[in-house]
């Protein structure tokens, strides 16, 4: 397999990290920590996840010398976090708890009539662009609240897939879930966000 295509800026950053440049580390920490936290939170509670992510960055100082660019830097970092988090989980003799059994959110499922048609159809206006919606500070706060309320497994899947734009294969690998289970996590999380935005647009309340 050849090397992954990198953004030229990423190569500059990698060189900076390899030469132990503090500025490069500061930049990388800002850039990659949110994604690394999303990975860690899939497996662990918040405090343990922060601990693991901090430890990972210290490890990276030396480990970056072995980075060969077979994957992107982000994927490489996410795999390091995932491995550490899995070890942590194993030591604590715990398992990830996730419900993969039903793709339809119960609140959305309740909106269909027994014949499978909409009983309470969607009322959301989809003609506003995401950017325009984001300029509404109250909606942004509401989204934060709802994202925090999602089960960790759903939130991590959503973050990695949506915000960090990993390919499905990478997300499955990092989170140790099957492709079909990833689809369930993603869809469940997206439905929750859909329901939240709908309520917000309808009532102006979170």
């Amino acid at each position: 397999m050849g090397t992954a295509t990198h953004h030229p800026d990423e190569d500059i950053l990698i060189n900076g990290l390899k030469s132990g440049n503090q500025g490069a580390f500061r930049e990388a920490v800002r850039l990659y920590t949110p994604g690394m936290m999303a990975v860690a939170r899939f497996y662990l509670d918040h405090a343990s996840a922060e601990e693991i992510v901090q430890d990972c960055w210290v490890t990276v100082i030396d480990a970056i010398q072995t980075f060969e660019g077979r994957s992107g830097l982000k994927t490489w970092l996410h795999r390091i976090v995932a491995n550490r988090a899995k070890n942590h989980l194993r030591k604590a003799k715990r398992e990830v708890n996730a419900d993969f059994s039903e793709a339809l959110d119960p609140d959305l499922a309740a909106r269909f009539a027994p014949n499978g048609r909409w009983a309470t159809p969607p009322s959301l206006k989809s003609n506003e662009s995401a950017q325009a919606l984001m300029e509404n500070g109250a909606l942004s706060d509401c989204l934060d609240q709802h994202l925090s309320a999602l089960p960790e497994t759903q939130r991590s899947a959503l973050m990695l897939y949506e915000a960090h734009q990993h390919k499905s294969d990478d997300v499955c690998n990092i989170l140790d879930v099957s492709a079909s289970n990833l689809r369930v996590l993603l869809h469940r999380a997206r439905q929750k966000i859909f329901l939240m935005v709908e309520t917000f647009q309808e009532t102006g309340e979170c």
Partner: peptide, 15 residues
């Protein structure tokens, strides 16, 4: 359409 908009919203937000 709305689900798509929610997905875009999510991407714009979480970054």
């Amino acid at each position: 359409g709305s689900l798509r908009a929610s997905i875009e919203l999510m991407s714009a937000h979480s970054s």
